[in-house]
Amino acid sequence: MSTVVKFANPSPADTGSDPEQPQISHADSFVELEDVTVTYGRGKNVVRALDTTTLRVKAGDFVALVGPSGCGKSTILKLVGHLIGASSGYVYVAGREVGAEPVRIGMAFQNPTLLPWLKIRDNVMLPLKIVPPFRGEYRTKRKTEFRDRCDALLKQVGLDGFGDKYPWQLSGGMLQRASLCRALIHDPQLLLLDEPFGALDQFTREELWAIMQELWMTRKPTVLLVTHDLREAGYLANRICVMRARPGQIIDDSQIEFPRPRTMAMTYEPEFVALNQRLRELIVEARGAPAASAIPEATP
């Protein structure tokens, strides 16, 4: 799991850090982006999705990424999940260059993406079928240990007794809970959430925030949450990074100090509202920023 401190010196001086020795990194951060840029397309049609971004996330931290659409929030998740590569710069996860070493990652999206032909329980257990330490034991334990583990998790998110149902028998909020279970069943070190509550109604969403907070507090994975909802970010995260678009960059990084467990009532207290307002202004500013900033608009 998370590495012991080997060499902790997060000074910008070693940005170029030897490609020969990528394992030497800043060990107190679990996820680290170092001067990362991501561009799509080539020639005239090049689009800069992420512009020289540096971000360090401590192990067990809960970081929310907020910002206008197209600011590269999801790009950061994809980089960390090793779904795309950086055009330049380095991405480290668990002290190694991303992809170099297997890290258990859970992922959930706005769309629950459960497999319609499997029961909820089998859907949730899908990662156990794939991820190495469990993979070899899947056949022997799927009716015993894994099943109990899955049912316990389902119970924790309020889906007790729904393991034998098929996805189309459940409502949207229930599917999203199941999707969270699937993201957590293999005890991930890193949880990547891309607007997981975006498509739900207000009350279901708030219910799921409470569940999410509880899951995080009991398991302490490192979480990166992409969201449009500032209340959600304030309620769940320890730290909020505000991004702006074109070029995608982090323009504000604040620690959220509200005590845990947080309650829904807290989100209406003056300090919380003040935080929300400050973030909101930052985003409005980021959106409204004239395109004069740096790179000229590259349209096809």
């Binding site: 999206f109 497999l115 899908l126 991820v131």
Partner: peptide, 22 residues
């Protein structure tokens, strides 16, 4: 669905795993 493929890829599923399970 590309998102499902992303889920599988972050689990480090091989192409055969994805083909067989999804």
């Amino acid at each position: 669905e590309p998102e499902l493929e992303d889920v599988m890829k972050t689990l480090r599923a091989s192409r055969f795993d994805i083909l067989w399970n999804v």
